[in-house]
Design a protein around this nucleic acid. Sequence first.
DNA 1: CATTATAATAAACATAATGTTGGATTACAA
DNA 2: TTGTAATCCAACATTATGTTTATTATAATG
Lengths: 181, 181
Amino acid sequence: MNENKLDRRVKYTRTMLKNALVQLMKQQHISTISVKALCELADINRSTFYAHYNDQNDLLHQMEEEVMDDLRWHLKDVLPQSFDDKAPVLVLTRIFEYAKENSELFQVLLGENSDYLFQKDVIELSQIVSSRNNDNTLDARTKDYIVEFRTAGCISIFQKWLKEGTIESSDEMSNLVGRLL
Amino acid sequence: MNENKLDRRVKYTRTMLKNALVQLMKQQHISTISVKALCELADINRSTFYAHYNDQNDLLHQMEEEVMDDLRWHLKDVLPQSFDDKAPVLVLTRIFEYAKENSELFQVLLGENSDYLFQKDVIELSQIVSSRNNDNTLDARTKDYIVEFRTAGCISIFQKWLKEGTIESSDEMSNLVGRLL
DNA sequence: CATTATAATAAACATAATGTTGGATTACAA
DNA sequence: TTGTAATCCAACATTATGTTTATTATAATG
């Protein structure tokens, strides 16, 4: 937020560290990444790192929050409408679009070397879409399980799509997911 | 395998370490658990730990393999049949039964403080059940996505059930999952 | 029960990452 | 240009790691 009114040096430091984190997380789990390795790859002094972040996780979480904020900003004009009937697929398309434009980042943040926090954020966002269910013959608990089933299924498709290079278009993907739900 | 022809002291050491790991993994991610903390909780000398395992991950993986072997042993009389039409729900029921009997362990091994290895094993096992799909109007890639969707959904329901105390019976759960697929 | 084998312990060690500090240097903004 | 502040550098104590050694305790066996 208001990253642009920051000192260039600060911007540079944080950018290099974030990039380094993404590169390392392609190879290893977040909690096995040392601050030392991170700083060496980013060519940033270790004491500078600690001036910005507490540890690797802190850096990851700040990245996650920034991405989510940015994503929500990109959805701002479709989200309020999402409670009528046609909007869900529109929201989905937008999410897939945004993810495709930032696929390297999304692949890492949603991949198995990350923590579950980002995944939870995305789930929360997409439950607006996947939780609509007007079958009243089912009890509440069964419905809960169904929502769980659906959202996990969606996320998993999302991950597969990212991992395999976002071959399909955003439209194709949102249609596929829309049909499955 | 053939754990019973081991020296009692060895059995004791490994049991204590496994129990300690399960306890710690209720609180924190596997890769943040130190060998030191593990040994202190288990009251086992640290050099003894290294006589058995390389690190926490090694201990976890050995546990995972043992559980999977034991689970497969419990399924041995239903698995060969699983390629006809009625067996899937039977396999599911057995898996839920076994998991319920070892729910603390399963909750940890499938929980977010574990790695993905155990989850992958379970997925592999349950894909025998969830991957049957004879809709020929769909292309191969779409089918892949559907399999992905289904298995992830199943695992997620499984996790929810475990986390909330395995309230439903194994039969209820296998029926629910059977219907969803 | 006594003997032998071996597992576990305790203590010490080098190594490496951590988190912090104080001071020198550099780059920025105004 | 100048004051401010971010970065760098070097040093530090602390902690976990992984290994090794000698010693003690326990299990298996005849």
